[in-house]
Design a binder for these strands. Structure first.
Lengths: 387, 387
DNA sequence: GTGATCCCTGCAAAGGTTTGCAGTGAAGTA
DNA sequence: TACTTCACTGCAAACCTTTGCAGGGATCAC
């Protein structure tokens, strides 16, 4: 009673039943051959495997998901896949997931909070958990959605939820201190999206660092976190009279440099620019970008680990007796903060208050502190941090 | 007999049955309310919808997929998500798919043919079709895999399968003619991955164009299609003595420029460089890159359309009576070729055989403005092609 | 009043897999 | 020999939804 098909067309779906018939065992034995091999006689096992191989059998994940309640998929919601900040994170997450026999479902929201919410809903039933990267929606909405599907949040702090954070506060501080050490006193911060946690953190840290370093911080923004966003504020930056700029991210910094160039303002001779992220591109533009390196790969891996760990504790869809007790208790709510690193390249240079080069600190000018050497507090590694 | 859970934990999965009970109808009516609303009384419908909304019901796609044989997902297999060429394609595909109520499952193969095959297998049962972008595996393997799941191939020609191609042959020709028009006679082609269709097409077209233009073409490669790949051949390019280079893609071109710079070779004064793709980055490097713009967004949209069209013809998993007749016949095998466009920017300049400046002839020097550019065979649009 | 038509709804099977339980036969123990 | 243990396998329910079929009223025409 097999359906007549030529070799040309799409293969007739071969099910566990076909394998069972071919190898002369019950379907449950075939099932066990795949999901609990130790329970089946080695002899039977090889025969079943041979038949399965022969027929080209592959388990139907939808059916499996239906009964186990676990899809072995995870969702990855990204603010903007075209932002080079994300691909390394995605790659790392995918690779980590693959090691655990999970697949990753990537979706892009175009920085749109509504699309984010919609995507979480849509994904909820076909994944075991969702990684929310740089979300733009409100904390309360995130909390609410987390009741629908296990969530791990990246680049956002949400109390009660597992989060992977990058210490951009520390990074911004290091950047500001670096600029102050170079003699800059008027510094601008190019803000990113209003609803970005990173944006708020940077702003706070930069303000503190500027104040304690005796510099004045001008906040410009919010801006789109893209080259265009940076390009658009170039004129504003020039008119503001600042001599140094810390941008929300590398793309914006690069766009700004481009825009300043068009206005005849040279970087770093007239204005110093620092970015954040250390995307590959930042090594390729002229001048090469000084930037705060963020450990994107590590973030992706960590996020997957946290999600899977949480998942294992409480299998979804569990309803049988006893499920109620395990349900809703063991939520991992760990928050991981990853280090950032200031990488000094060519887009920052001495400011108007730079002291002339001198071997040992003899504090001249209006800047009587800074004991030993330039006030660069952070290790300026030559490359991005690894893990 | 409801499981006791606090409001805190993950929500108890609410099924069609719960909605049925709450609204006092049979589950089939609830089902129809969602999948065939016109079949149910408006009054009933609103009541059911209200209950569903109230309980937070969302259809279980796994169960639906099990019976309909359609997951409403499509897979998107990408050679390297970190290559800026792909994100616009992904975005376009996602958006197009979303309009048709499909989700996109993105996976990255790291340019590894084995990973590609594995991913197709893994995806086969949980998507309705797969988009294979710039595959690195063999044609015969692709054909074989296409029997397992509907496939649309992008950037590769496979007879018998629907393909979306970009006319890189035309692009390479235009680039070579542009270089010859500038007075270059020794031109290098930086090859990409050996198994790349694009690579072969470019090579063939470039060779023909060079021959008929009286230039000599040196092929260097294969190389990795990345900045690193370009960086690594810089020395080879210098020693080869050519004055112009056509690179496999923009990343490689940018890496090459970087490498030449490090060797003290100036672009475009000493060597002209042309890339392919017109990634956003190519507008931001110095010098701005002359490149062959490829319509990536259009490719993504077209590919999704072709896949869905093919899908609609033959629902997968169909087994009932009559399925055999419809199965395996109506495979769309259309092949779409999309236009490319040469975009002239600052990385190409006059070669050693350039004619001296003349009022109405070829403009020499880095002077970019010329109304009706002679010597420039292709329309030099200022921006990427739209659609 | 009878029959036909139509709209709406319920019934039940089906889809592919997992898994608790029970059954089988062989080996080991007393 | 009788009993226990053990390894393996079969049985059947369950997961959640869709869908062909049939039933139940109501409406309408004759």
């Amino acid at each position: 009673m097999t359906v007549a098909t030529s070799d040309e067309g799409p293969a007739v779906p071969v099910t566990i039943r076909d394998v069972a018939r071919a190898s002369g065992v019950h379907i449950s034995t075939v099932s066990r051959t795949f999901s609990a091999p130790h329970l089946v006689n080695p002899e039977t096992r090889v025969r079943v495997l041979a038949c399965a191989e022969d027929l080209g059998y592959r388990p139907n994940r939808a059916a499996r998901a239906l009964i186990t309640g676990r899809t072995h998929n995870i969702g990855l919601i990204i603010a903007d896949i075209a932002n080079p900040f994300f691909p390394p994170l995605i790659k790392a997450a995918e690779s980590q997931a693959r090691h655990r026999d999970y697949h990753v479902f990537v979706a892009d929201t175009n920085e749109d909070p509504t699309a984010e919410e919609e995507l979480v809903h849509a994904l909820a039933k076909q994944v075991d958990g969702v990684l929310l990267c740089s979300p733009r929606m409100s904390n309360s909405l995130i909390e609410q959605l987390s009741r629908e599907v296990p969530l791990v949040v990246v680049n956002r702090q949400v109390t009660g939820l597992p989060c992977v954070l990058m210490d951009v506060g520390q990074g911004a501080r290091a950047a500001i201190e670096h600029l102050i050490g170079l003699g800059h006193r008027g510094i601008a911060l190019l803000g990113g999206p209003r609803s970005s946690w990173t944006n708020r953190e940077m702003r706070r840290a930069a303000a503190t660092a500027a104040r304690s370093g005796g510099a004045e911080l001008t906040v410009l923004g919010p801006n789109a976190p893209t080259e265009t966003g940076g390009l658009a504020v170039a004129d504003q930056v020039r008119r503001s009279g600042v001599t140094a700029v810390l941008a929300y991210n590398d793309l914006m910094a690069i766009g700004l440099i481009e825009g300043l160039d068009a206005l005849g303002v040279r970087v770093p001779q007239e204005v110093s620019v620092v970015g954040v992220d250390d995307i590959a591109l930042s090594r390729l533009t002229r001048p090469k970008l000084t930037t705060v390196a963020t450990p994107t790969g590590a973030a992706g891996r960590t996020a997957v680990d946290m999600l899977l760990q949480q998942d294992i504790e409480s299998p979804r869809g569990a309803r049988g007796p006893g499920a109620g007790t395990a349900l809703g208790v063991r939520r991992t709510t760990a928050q991981v903060m990853l280090q950032t690193d200031l990488v000094i390249r060519d887009s920052t240079g001495p400011g108007p208050h730079a002291r002339p080069a001198r071997p040992l600190a003899a504090p001249p000018g209006p800047d009587p502190h800074c004991p030993a050497g330039p006030g660069v507090p952070t290790a300026a590694t030559g490359d991005a941090v690894a893990s």
